[in-house]
Design a binder for these strands. Structure first.
Lengths: 191, 191
DNA sequence: ACCGTATGCCAACACCTGTTGACACGCCAG
DNA sequence: CTGGCGTGTCAACAGGTGTTGGCATACGGT
């Protein structure tokens, strides 16, 4: 068994946290390859070699920095007519409150490991949430995939590529437009 | 005036084309930073310095390789009820027949210039197409942006991140699910 | 046949990258 | 007080990057 959580607080915990914070910022702003360990270390005001000691490698650092929980609400407690609206609002909040998702999305375009993690998050977490309410199990994966496609497209155009009309839309209007789409992907049928 | 098109075919045109083809492949597969000039030159079976002579710099090469025309159909000739379906089918074809778009999307996540070009393509070309049929000019930019968000999300999950359920969907089913979404973004109203 | 020029290769540059090992300081248990 | 260990810095390595200039060669017009 790997001894996680001996709970003994180490003096270096603050440094570890600073590194992680700087890493998330840099990965979110620059993507995986342009976010250099040296720049991250400089932001955290320590030597680059510390990053290696605490996280092993750049890949290890990214893996630690890209840990993420969508914190999806319990969809069984949401009125079935408001699923889309609720999810879109939740994703907007989650996206704007934590730059980890932006880091993950930026990196996922070029880094296979990041793409892997992205797949995992949206397949596992979103897939599980979609499976909680009673749609045909045969189609849940597809429905979750379609939701992911719309949500990620929204995130891509709003936070990464920054298409002006999408950036300019207030959250409420985004919910108004995209909510029904998500609703249909979850509970509707094609064509 | 810059003398474009003296129409005199140069002996090096084949080389130029080979470089461009290799560049599109590499940019599409690896993104901007990981696609190295050396690797592109090796694919094209020439010396890296030739790339510099013909395209000036890596940025110049990318700019040439990322030239792209969506070739959107004339939307005024499409029955207004089939706009969504038509557009989705067109985008799927365009995306699968030319890796330039994939290169552009991969690069747009990390390279500001690529993001710029992406914005240009979807604002100018898609925006113009959406403007051709008579919706309120006030909302055309927003409608075009929403369409871009859904289409780019579909492309991201199908060709870049490769979410299994989206990859597995046959084109006809994609059209069946996403077509109505695009239709609503073009001709419908929120909420 | 000749010569200029377009085409291509080679070697090198300056720089930046992730990563490593040796060395210094300071906290804390004994 | 005195070790030992956790924390941090410094300098360097080996490799890869975009980019540059010089040199060979072969084409094409005269």
């Amino acid at each position: 068994m790997t001894d996680t959580a001996p709970a003994r607080p180490r003096r270096s915990d603050a440094t570890r946290a600073a590194i992680l914070r700087a890493a998330r910022e840099r990965f979110a702003a620059d993507g995986y390859e342009r976010a250099t360990i040296r720049a991250i270390a400089a932001d955290a005001r320590i030597d680059p070699s510390m990053v290696m000691r605490y996280y092993g490698s750049k890949e290890g650092l990214f893996a630690a920095a890209a840990e993420f929980d969508l914190r999806l609400p319990d969809l069984t407690r949401v009125p079935s007519g408001q699923l889309g609206e609720t999810l879109v609002r939740h994703f907007l909040d989650r996206w704007e409150g934590d730059e980890t998702l932006a880091a993950l999305l930026r990196a996922a375009s070029t880094n296979p490991g990041a793409a892997d993690r992205m797949r995992g998050i949206f397949a596992d977490q979103l897939g599980a949430a979609v499976a909680t309410f009673g749609t045909d199990p045969e189609t849940t994966a597809r429905r979750a995939g379609l939701v992911a496609a719309q949500i990620l497209g929204l995130a891509l155009t709003r936070y990464i590529v920054r298409l002006p009309p999408i950036v300019a839309m207030p959250p409420a209007e985004v919910v108004g437009w995209v909510g029904p789409t998500i609703q249909r992907y979850l509970t509707g049928s094609p064509d």
